[in-house]
C-alpha cells in the first residue's frame, strides 16, 4: 500500500531548475569555508615556511626532542590520572541524582573557564612553605616548583574536565536498565561494570583520554608559571620565539603540530560510531 502512495508523489515539473542553491545552505557553506580557512591557513603557512634544512636541524636537536618527549610524558601522565580518578567520578555523575549535583558539575567545568596562568599561581600558592598543604608536601619530599610533578599537576587540572565530561556522556548512553538486568541475573556491581558498562562505554573513555591529553599537550600558561624547566614543547617554542625570533620557533612548532595531529586523528578514529557500540 505504501508503495502505491510513493508512486503517486508528484514529480517536479520538467525543466524546473534543480541546480539553484538554497540561500540557507549557501550561507552555511560560506560560513564553513571561512572557518576552515581561518583554522587551516596559519597552520599550513607555518608548516611550509621552515626549509627542510631547518626542520632537519631542529629535529635532531636533543633539546627539542626532549621537550616534545616531556610534553607527551607529562600530558600522558595527566590523562592516566584523569582515567584513574575521573572514571568512578564520571560514573557517579552519570548514574546518581543528588542535591547539589549541578553545583558539582559546575566545579568539574571550572578549570575550563579559569585563565591558565591563574591555575599555575593557585597551585604554587598552595604548594609554598607558608601554606599548611605546602608544608605537608615538603615533609613528603614532594616538590612542585620546577618539577615534572608540578607540570603533571597543572596538566591534570586543565585536562580533567575534558575526560570527565566525555566519559560521563558515555556512561549516560548505557541504559541503567542493562545494569539492573545484569544484577538481577546474579552479577555483582563490579562484574556488571566490567561485563556490561565498560564494553559499552570504552570508546567514550578512549575519546576522553585523548581529549584530556590533547588539551594537556597544548597547555602553556599554567605550565610556565609552575615550571620553566624541565621544558615542555610549548614553553620551548615561546622561549625560542622571544630569544631568537620567528624563524627558530617555527620548526619546533611544526613538530608539536604533528604530534597534536596524530592525537586528533586517533580521536576521530576512536569516536563513537552511530550504533553507539564498540
Amino acid at each position: 500500500m505504501n508503495k502505491h502512495t510513493d508512486d503517486a508523489l508528484p514529480l517536479p515539473p520538467p525543466g524546473s531548475d534543480r541546480r539553484r542553491v538554497d540561500p540557507f545552505l549557501g550561507i552555511a557553506l560560506a560560513a564553513s569555508a571561512i572557518i576552515m580557512a581561518f583554522v587551516l591557513l596559519p597552520l599550513v603557512e607555518m608548516v611550509v615556511q621552515p626549509s627542510v634544512e631547518d626542520l632537519r636541524e631542529t629535529w635532531s636537536d636533543p633539546d627539542v626532542i626532549r621537550a616534545i618527549g616531556m610534553s607527551l610524558y607529562t600530558s600522558g601522565s595527566a590523562a592516566l590520572i584523569a582515567f584513574v580518578f575521573g572514571t568512578p567520578f564520571a560514573y557517579l555523575l552519570a548514574r546518581k541524582h543528588f542535591p547539589g549535583k549541578r553545583l558539582v558539575e559546575s566545579v568539574v567545568d571550572l578549570p575550563i573557564m579559569i585563565p591558565h596562568p591563574v591555575v599555575g599561581i593557585a597551585l604554587l600558592s598552595m604548594a609554598g612553605r607558608h601554606h599548611w598543604f605546602g608544608r605537608i608536601l615538603d615533609q613528603l619530599n614532594i616538590q612542585i616548583m620546577g618539577t615534572v610533578t608540578g607540570i603533571v599537576c597543572v596538566l591534570t587540572f586543565v585536562g580533567l574536565p575534558f575526560y570527565i565530561n566525555a566519559v560521563k556522556t558515555g556512561f549516560e548512553a548505557v541504559p541503567a536498565r542493562l545494569e539492573t538486568v545484569s544484577r538481577s541475573l546474579g552479577a555483582s556491581p563490579w562484574s556488571t561494570f566490567f561485563r556490561i558498562t565498560l564494553p559499552l562505554a570504552w570508546r567514550s573513555m578512549l575519546v576522553g583520554l585523548i581529549m584530556c591529553m590533547a588539551r594537556a599537550v597544548s597547555e602553556f600558561g599554567a605550565v610556565v608559571i609552575v615550571a620553566y624547566h624541565p621544558m615542555v614543547a610549548p614553553v620551548m617554542i615561546y622561549e625560542r620565539f622571544t630569544a631568537y625570533g620567528l624563524k627558530y620557533s617555527q620548526p619546533v612548532a611544526v613538530g608539536l603540530i604533528m604530534v597534536c595531529l596524530v592525537l586528533f586523528l586517533l580521536l576521530r578514529w576512536a569516536s563513537p560510531r552511530k550504533d553507539g557500540t564498540a
Binding site: P175, R177, L178, S184, I196, D275, T277
Partner: peptide, 12 residues
C-alpha cells in the same frame, strides 16, 4: 527475573 518492555538485551 525481570523482563522489560524494551527487552534490555546486552547489545555487545
Amino acid at each position: 527475573g525481570i523482563l522489560y518492555q524494551d527487552h534490555a538485551l546486552f547489545p555487545h
